[in-house]
Design a protein around this nucleic acid. Structure first.
Lengths: 226, 226
DNA sequence: TATACCATACTTCCATACAAGTCAACATTG
DNA sequence: CAATGTTGACTTGTATGGAAGTATGGTATA
């Protein structure tokens, strides 16, 4: 090993503030367009403005906030164009990945995916939205791993944050059963080593958002920008 | 228009410092692994440490620097895994885009691309590497625009910064003539409205990096991490 | 000579003070 | 009454001082 890379610095104050805010934004606890203030947040958690400010900068870099100098800082609205772009990218990338997987999917990987499907059904039955979203993420990540490209999934992490925000905000809207059925169709395609069918199933699945988006945008227009 | 969005804040000191450093990192003027210091940079350009520090944070968020608390800040090395992931993503996305374009490429767009090809040949003949890289970016962006998805290209901007850094560092290595030939093949496929051929030409083009990367990594190992 | 210790000069991190821009409410003026 | 000016309380931006951790080189010690 080149360096003892497992020596990582303890989480700084700024890092902790960032993690906290990041989570609140993703879960929709802080609503798009909502105003936040360095001094206010600093006062709430008992630190100075400095680490809070640095957290704001990082949120801005990730498209989750917008700083308007001398005016205020605001939780970023969800850009419909950005969401559509992210969706298109996901479709393109995951289509390629699923072809790789389907050409050589070991039985162990299939079994793992089947177990995940069961867990998804269980979470859906319990109406545990947060867990379901988590499992959905895991499902797609597992496919990337099976394709030997987990890194790709990590690189796309930033794009997904916008889509995740969308999912939390619209938790009650989307049809979990339909998503599970689509996941099942994908796994079945893998089971039969059918790359073409697998790709089509994946594309269909990832285009589901296109059906839901108009209604979502209509129901909460104040959360979105063009 | 909802808001007079053309009212944008003047560039702050921190923003200017960031732009300056960002450009220097991308052009390889600051080498991967090189150490930089808040106080030193601040002294060089005559500002306090604060805006420099904020620029460092943004560089870190974009994967261009690494801050090790109480130790120093270093220009990020180029992650080979990240580069390979970015390449795969580009191939997947641009393959989908080129299919869209080829199915309905207006003559005006084709003419524009032909003009760009001429400009590429001219820049290559003049050995103007910086201009060539710029034109290469423009070429791929133009394809995205022709597909009606310029936003997608913007979203991928972050990924490209790593690859651009690579290109500057290895400016003399890559074979510009080969790239131009591949670009030409892509445009020809569009001219004949042949989606399948266009996609294959694009994939071949974007896989070129896979041939070059081993040599690049061998020639400057200190610039890379696994 | 080799090793342990330690002073010192760095580094980033955090807190604080002040500067400058913005906005809204209110007073003033015609 | 309407328009204008002004004050003051906000906001983020910048500068600076000190806290705490780290690396380095010298020094004492075995």
């Amino acid at each position: 090993m080149d360096q003892a890379s497992f020596i990582v610095p303890a989480h700084s104050t700024a890092q902790q503030v960032y993690d906290w805010l990041h989570g609140r934004v993703l879960r929709g606890d802080l609503a798009p367009g909502e105003r936040i203030s360095e001094t206010e947040i600093a006062g709430q958690i008992g630190v100075s403005r400095q680490p809070v400010r640095e957290a704001f900068i990082r949120l801005t870099a990730n498209g989750l906030a917008e700083v308007r100098p001398q005016r205020g800082t605001f939780i970023g609205r969800i850009s419909l164009k950005a969401v559509l772009s992210a969706r298109l990218i996901r479709e393109a990338v995951e289509s390629d990945l699923i072809r790789i997987v389907s050409s050589a999917a070991p039985d162990a990987a299939i079994a793992e995916l089947d177990a995940q499907l069961a867990a998804q059904r269980e979470a859906s039955a319990r109406q545990d939205v947060e867990r379901f979203i988590e499992l959905d993420d895991l499902f797609h990540r597992s496919l990337a791993i099976a394709a030997g490209h987990e890194d790709v999934w990590n690189v796309l992490e930033g794009l997904k944050s916008q889509m995740n925000r969308l999912r939390y905000i619209t938790a009650r809207v989307f049809d979990q059963q339909k998503l599970i059925d689509q996941h099942t169709a994908i796994v079945d395609s893998l089971r039969h080593h059918d790359p073409e069918q697998a790709e089509q199933a994946m594309r269909l699945h990832l285009r589901e958002l296109l059906n839901d988006l108009p209604e979502i945008a209509r129901s909460k227009p104040e959360f979105f920008t063009k």
